Computed example of a mutant assay.
Amino acid sequence: MIEQKSHPTGPVPAPRPVRAVARCAVVALALAALTWVARAVWHLRLATAGMPASGPPDQGGGEHRPLNALEDSYHLVDSVGGAVTAVCAIAFLFWLDRMRDNARALSGAEPRYAYLWLWLGWVVPVVNLWIPRGLVADVHRSVFPERPLPAVVNWWWGLWLAGLAGGVGLIYADDTDEVIARAYDGVLPLLAADLVVVAAAGAAALMIHTLTTAQQRRLDEPAEAAQATRAA
């Protein structure tokens, strides 16, 4: 069973402020986008430089030639990008976890998907095509059932899936030296994937802002009502 029952099964936690974790997630997304822009710049630099006379870094048969300075710097950009992307993923999941807890507190209902799927839903094949979007959509719909899902959620998810497609976006099917060879031989697919990932990061940041603002306003309503009562 992927989905769980909607009625509460334990004590409902008190809602907590979500703006701080949202800001951290947005900053992490911005940094991740910058690393992917840097990756695109290096792809262009490799394509402009052209394949060295000695051939690609991976010579075949398990042999690799020494890397030149540009190729070495691409390895550094790739490593930094991977580390920043990992931090970004953690920040995003902490934001989503806080949003889920608050949605449960505000709606009085259990999230549609069990907590385990908050982490596994991104990596389990097949179900990772819909569960992450479902986790985000549930955060909004459980608190605002009368409102349509913000369009930015679907934009984010479409761009995320496009970034995963083809093995040239968020998850490369090839190792770094093979990606370098791709940049020498045909850089356009790599640049297209870079652009999609940067767009996905931007859509994710806008989505975080949209959902966080709506939820925080709902969280602030009791305090605002109490202040209005005192003023009256």
Rank of each mutant, 00 (worst) to 15 (best):
M1Y: 09
E3P: 11
Q4H: 02
K5V: 14
S6N: 14
H7D: 14
P8I: 12
T9F: 06
P11L: 14
V12E: 09
A14E: 07
P17V: 08
V18K: 03
V21T: 13
A22M: 06
V27Y: 12
A28G: 02
A30K: 11
A30T: 15
A30M: 10
L31S: 12
A32N: 10
L34A: 14
R39D: 09
A40E: 10
V41R: 02
L46F: 04
G50H: 06
A53H: 13
S54P: 03
P66G: 04
P66N: 02
N68A: 13
N68E: 07
A69C: 05
L70T: 03
Y74D: 00
Y74V: 00
V80L: 09
G81V: 06
G82D: 02
V84Q: 02
C88A: 14
I90S: 03
F92D: 11
L93N: 04
L96T: 09
D101S: 13
N102P: 06
A105I: 10
A105Q: 07
L106Q: 08
A109Q: 11
Y113E: 07
Y115H: 15
W117M: 03
V123T: 07
V123N: 04
G134C: 05
L135F: 00
V136N: 03
H140D: 04
R141K: 14
S142V: 01
S142F: 02
V143N: 02
P145C: 11
R147G: 01
L149I: 12
P150W: 06
A151W: 08
V153N: 04
N154D: 15
W156V: 03
A162K: 04
G167V: 01
G169P: 05
I171N: 08
I171P: 01
Y172K: 13
D174T: 06
V179I: 13
I180Q: 08
R182S: 12
A183I: 06
D185G: 13
G186F: 08
L188V: 14
A192L: 12
G202F: 04
L206C: 14
M207A: 08
L211H: 06
A214E: 08
R217N: 12
R218G: 04
A223R: 15
A225M: 14
A228M: 07
